[in-house]
Nucleic acid binder design. Structure first.
Length: 502
RNA sequence: GCCCCCAUCGUCUAGUGGCCUAGGACAUUCGGUUUUCAUCCGAACAACAGGGAUUCGAAUUCCCUUGGGGGUACCA
């Protein structure tokens, strides 16, 4: 573990309730959680709800529900072994620290910086700043704030403020200075203050404190020792380190994680890529939280000893920050589906049943089948579903009649007409016992011998006739579940269809 | 524009100077098992972006080029 002055490893996830829970947020949370767990540290949660215009209660609940569904929980920041001096201000129910509860504290620190001359008021109007930018563009210069208000005297500044002139507060970054840190994922990092766009605003003219500032005050107050976040925060980190220094706080360790990309190699964003970025989508489609979590951790992280399929606890035992990749990971829904299948196939029947019930209109309205038959039915399709949303397409024919419209399938029916007719005769002579799943198959076997047919040629027409599909569980099982009467009906229809089109 | 980051099969990655004619997983294709289906098993396909340098030896170190991405707010 890298050394710093913090007494204990404490990490956090700090989502902002300005949108629904994002896959990237979850992955960031997971790596922070894993790092804390493998160092016997704490993993905390802070809600960054200071943007009053965009933050909503609805998003807050959605984020919290999402984490709960994923079984990601955080520690109590006020627990007995919390580091000395760690704040409890802003702590609300469920171990959540709300940033909006800490505004007074943020403002005190702004004032402190102002008093110490490390920050200053900037009275430049929007028009002034626009003109500056236009001028810089005309001169082909880099557009950035020129730190003009640094030179305003303290007296002047106080006077203007007293007169009620609007101002923002900016942090004095100094001149041409490299801000460096040893990034836990990327190694030595260095960003020059002149590339930061001028002295950053830390308090808006409305009096509201800005993200970069509030984060630093809160992270230090919470005694956060390690911060893992997306690499899109790289330049924020430079500004934040400057703020840590100005405030005289010890600086935590930073690690910048690779981003998740979409197929088109853009940052996975809710705005551009819609639902696929939102955790809720996966919940609604019937993914298992364990599978989603596993997939998310496994992109950008591999460990030979735990392999591909693992739980958070298993990963926490072996977690090494060095095993995190530096390059972005392209989001691959097929791989996620594979993970989900893996987890579904391992589920106990009671879980299968309860998930299927949540996603199936047929099971909801079921009066046809008893519990034993439902069990046979669901176990028959368990291995073939990617996500529970698909359940009804796999079991629909057990509940509802269908029409074969696919030309290829109709052709198969025609070709197998004789087989189907023979089965009907066999059933008519009580040659098949529908109480026995094996019986139907034995009957087919006999017919196959008579007609000198086997394999696909023998089975596929029957499969299509009784299920309307080319794949599914064992034929004997299907016949057993659907029952004599219905099977006869479907076989007769199939013969009629074959005749009609022949 | 400027700053920063990244670069191995289609995708996720293993690989930290010789064990690499580059390994695994997903996907794809083809076989086998299951007389059908699913599963399972086997196989095939397929990559070190390019150029220099260092070295007896480079996917691995350094430099350049190229490509991709991120940032550049009184958002978080």
């Amino acid at each position: 573990m890298p050394e710093n002055s913090f007494k204990k490893v404490r990490t956090r996830i700090a989502p902002s309730p300005t949108g629904n829970l994002h896959l990237g947020t979850v992955r960031t949370a997971l790596y922070n959680l894993l790092y804390a767990k493998c160092h016997d540290g704490d993993f905390l949660f802070r809600l960054e709800d200071t943007d009053r215009e965009r933050s909503t209660e609805e998003f807050t609940n959605e984020i919290l529900d999402g984490f709960e569904w994923l079984n990601i929980s955080w520690d109590d920041p006020s627990s007995e072994d919390a580091p000395e001096g760690a704040t409890m201000t802003g702590l609300v129910e469920d171990n959540i620290i709300k940033q909006s509860q800490r505004e007074a504290i943020h403002k005190n620190y702004i004032q402190k910086l102002l008093d110490e001359g490390k920050a200053y008021r900037c009275f430049a109007t929007k028009e002034e700043l626009d003109a500056l930018r236009a001028q810089q563009q005309a001169n082909k210069e880099i557009t950035r704030y020129d730190n003009r208000s640094r030179s305003v005297s303290k007296e002047e500044s106080d006077k203007l403020a007293e007169e009620g002139k609007a101002f923002v507060v900016r942090l004095n970054l100094g001149t041409d200075r490299d801000i460096t840190w040893n990034d836990l994922v990327r190694g030595e990092m260095s960003i020059n203050t002149k590339d930061l766009g001028g002295d950053p605003v830390i308090q808006k003219s409305s009096g509201q404190v800005l993200y970069n500032f509030a984060v630093v005050v809160d992270d230090f107050a919470m005694q956060i020792s390690h911060i893992f976040r997306g690499e899109d925060h790289l330049s924020n980190t430079a500004k934040q380190i400057a703020i840590y220094n100005a405030l005289g706080f010890s600086v935590p360790e930073f690690g910048h994680l690779p981003l998740i990309f979409t197929q088109d190699k853009q940052k996975l964003s809710k705005r551009k890529h819609g639902d696929i970025a939102s955790v809720n989508t996966y919940k609604k489609q019937g993914y298992l939280p364990e599978a989603l979590v596993n997939y998310l951790v496994a992109t950008s992280y591999t460990d030979e000893t735990i392999g591909e399929v693992f739980t958070v606890d298993e990963a926490a035992d072996e977690f090494e920050i060095d095993d995190i990749s530096k390059s972005p990971a392209i989001y691959d829904i097929k791989k996620l589906n594979w993970f989900n299948r893996e987890y579904i196939s391992k589920l106990d029947y009671s879980d299968i049943l309860s998930f299927c019930k949540d996603f199936s209109k047929y099971l909801l309205a079921n009066t046809k089948y008893d519990g034993d038959k439902i069990k046979l039915m669901l176990e028959g399709v368990q291995d073939s579903i990617d996500k529970f949303e698909q359940i009804d397409t796999h079991i629909g024919y057990f509940f509802e009649d269908f029409t074969v419209i696919n030309e290829k399938e109709i052709k198969t029916l025609e070709e197998g007409k004789q087989i189907i007719e023979k089965i009907l005769i066999l059933i008519d002579h009580d040659g098949i016992n529908f109480d026995e799943p094996a019986s139907f198959k034995t009957g087919l076997d006999t017919i196959g011998k008579i007609l000198k047919l086997s394999g696909k040629k023998l089975f596929m027409p029957v499969r299509i006739a009784i299920s309307g599909k080319t794949s599914g569980p064992d034929l004997g099982l299907i016949a057993h579940l659907i029952g004599k009467e219905k099977i006869i009906e479907r076989l007769r229809i199939a013969v009629a269809e074959a005749v009609k089109t022949a």
